[in-house]
């Protein structure tokens, strides 16, 4: 994605709804991209929940959605780790491990960025918390 488009996307996100949920920082809808590089990126929607004991989630809701395998957060440094199956844009099942970090945790515009590895590939991901509950 050209850099100026990223900047525009970021600005559009800044103008997204004001009301963030103020409870567990991971709860809610996250959207962004994962891929091996800038030319090979997959759109990703991740819906996360917290029941007081553990995190659960749904990847790409709709036809072909996937239950999130497992996810953990270490609030001492706001790092996250997850292990799950994903379906990429070609319909291929990929088992991945990912590690990332939350930024702007106190803000409604929080982000989650990090890296992932599968058996054959690796790359990065970038997600932003969307408005709404």
């Amino acid at each position: 994605m050209p850099r100026y488009l990223s900047a525009l996307l970021f600005l559009a996100m800044l103008a997204s709804p004001a009301i963030a949920q103020q409870g567990h920082p991971l709860v809610g809808t996250w959207q962004g991209y994962w891929g091996t590089d800038d030319n090979n990126r997959n759109f990703l929607t991740l819906i996360l929940n917290w029941d007081g004991q553990k995190l659960s989630g749904l990847i790409n809701p709709g036809p072909g959605s996937t239950e999130l395998g497992s996810m953990n957060m270490d609030s001492s440094n706001w790092s996250v780790s997850l292990e799950t199956d994903l379906t990429d844009d070609d319909g291929m099942q990929v088992h991945i491990n990912a590690q990332g970090k939350l930024d702007n945790v106190g803000s409604m515009n929080r982000t989650m960025t990090g890296t992932w590895q599968s058996a054959s590939d690796s790359g990065s991901f970038t997600l932003e918390r969307q408005g709404g509950p």
């Binding site: 009301i19 103020q22 920082p25 001492s76 106190g106």
Partner: peptide
């Protein structure tokens, strides 16, 4: 607190309350 709740509380305190939705957006 649970761990995450404590750390979020501490973060908001260290931010001096500037993330407070009541004062930012009249929530």
């Amino acid at each position: 607190f649970q761990d995450w709740a404590h750390d979020l509380y501490a973060l908001r305190q260290l931010n001096d309350g500037k993330d407070d939705p009541l004062f930012l957006y009249c929530i």
